[in-house]
Amino acid sequence: MAMFSSQTPADKLATALSEYQADFEKKLRSQPNPDAEEARQRISRAEQLVRQSGLGKALETLLEHTKYWPSWSKRDDFRKWVGFPVGEVLAKEQRDEKQYRTTSTTVVCFLYGAEQYAIVFTDNGGMSLPDGEYYRSGTVDFVAGRETVLGLNLTQESNEYTSDWRYCGVYALKMGVWSKALLEMASHIRAHSRDTSIRHNDERTIAQAKNISV
């Protein structure tokens, strides 16, 4: 028994036109850009290195420790609060009042060992997103030898007690001996924070026991 197609001429025309459109769009599709693909791989390698080496967290630590130095460095007891060995410190902040938000740039230059380093922190301000969340972004450059050797994109994470900056991407990385210095600075800062906390706890304990004679 002969088999007959149930397709009508209109069905066949619709199928043919659909296949024609798919083939035409395939021809229009741009070819992969090898330069862009290589750039994506380079960024991926940089982000992996910054994450695995601890350099990203180290720069976060240094930023949180120094972001108020433009005002703190004017205090007589400033050195008491510096958590790593530095020489001369120069710090300034510039604020830019815009129509919808305020941005600021903080520059902190300092000597560590015999080398001069700097942090350039840009706070791009914040905005309210359609879902009601508040988003604040920024960037931080770690400068050695008068060039940015590590640059990170930042977002601010806030809770009831703190507002800390966290890195979310890498836009500059030029490896060198500065990397060891940055890791050392962060280790000094963490040790200083630990020691300060222990000392305060010890002082409170000694004060509490002052009038106890058992």
Rank of each mutant, 00 (worst) to 15 (best):
Met1Phe: 05
Met1Gln: 11
Ala2Ser: 10
Met3Tyr: 13
Phe4Gly: 12
Ser6Val: 03
Ser6Met: 10
Thr8Phe: 04
Pro9Asn: 02
Asp11Phe: 04
Leu13Asn: 06
Thr15Pro: 01
Ala16His: 04
Leu17Gly: 05
Ser18Gln: 15
Glu19Ile: 08
Glu19Lys: 14
Gln21Gly: 08
Ala22Pro: 06
Phe24Tyr: 15
Lys26Phe: 08
Gln31Phe: 09
Gln31Ser: 12
Asn33Gly: 00
Ala36Gly: 03
Glu37Met: 12
Glu38Arg: 09
Arg40Phe: 03
Arg45Trp: 15
Ala46Leu: 05
Gln48Arg: 14
Gln48Gly: 08
Gln48Glu: 15
Val50Asp: 04
Arg51Ala: 15
Ser53Asp: 02
Gly56Ile: 01
Lys57Pro: 06
Leu63Arg: 02
Glu64Lys: 09
Thr66Trp: 05
Ser71Thr: 11
Trp72Gly: 10
Lys74Trp: 09
Asp76Ile: 10
Asp77His: 00
Asp77Val: 01
Arg79Phe: 03
Lys80Ser: 14
Trp81His: 15
Trp81Asn: 09
Val82Gly: 06
Pro85Val: 01
Gly87Lys: 04
Glu88Arg: 10
Gln94Asp: 15
Asp96Glu: 13
Glu97Phe: 07
Gln99Glu: 14
Thr103His: 02
Thr105Tyr: 02
Cys109Asp: 15
Phe110Ile: 02
Leu111Glu: 14
Gly113Cys: 06
Gly113Thr: 05
Glu115Arg: 04
Ile119Tyr: 03
Val120Asp: 12
Leu129Cys: 09
Gly132Cys: 09
Gly132Asp: 02
Glu133Gly: 01
Glu133Val: 05
Tyr134Gln: 14
Ser137Leu: 01
Ser137Thr: 09
Ser137Ala: 11
Arg146Ile: 03
Arg146Thr: 08
Glu147Ile: 05
Thr148Leu: 00
Leu152Tyr: 00
Leu154Asn: 00
Gln156Leu: 13
Gln156His: 00
Tyr161Ser: 12
Thr162Phe: 11
Ser163Arg: 08
Ser163Thr: 11
Tyr167Arg: 02
Cys168Ile: 15
Gly169Arg: 03
Met175Cys: 03
Gly176Thr: 01
Gly176Gln: 01
Trp178Gly: 07
Trp178Thr: 05
His188Gln: 07
Ile189His: 03
Ile189Phe: 01
Ala191Met: 11
Ala191Pro: 05
Ala191Cys: 12
Arg194Phe: 03
Asp195Arg: 05
Asp195Ser: 03
Asp195Ile: 00
Ile198Gln: 13
Asp202Ser: 07
Ile206Val: 11
Ile206Gln: 14
Ala207Val: 07
Ala207Lys: 11
Ala209Gln: 11
Lys210Arg: 14
Lys210Cys: 10
Asn211Tyr: 08
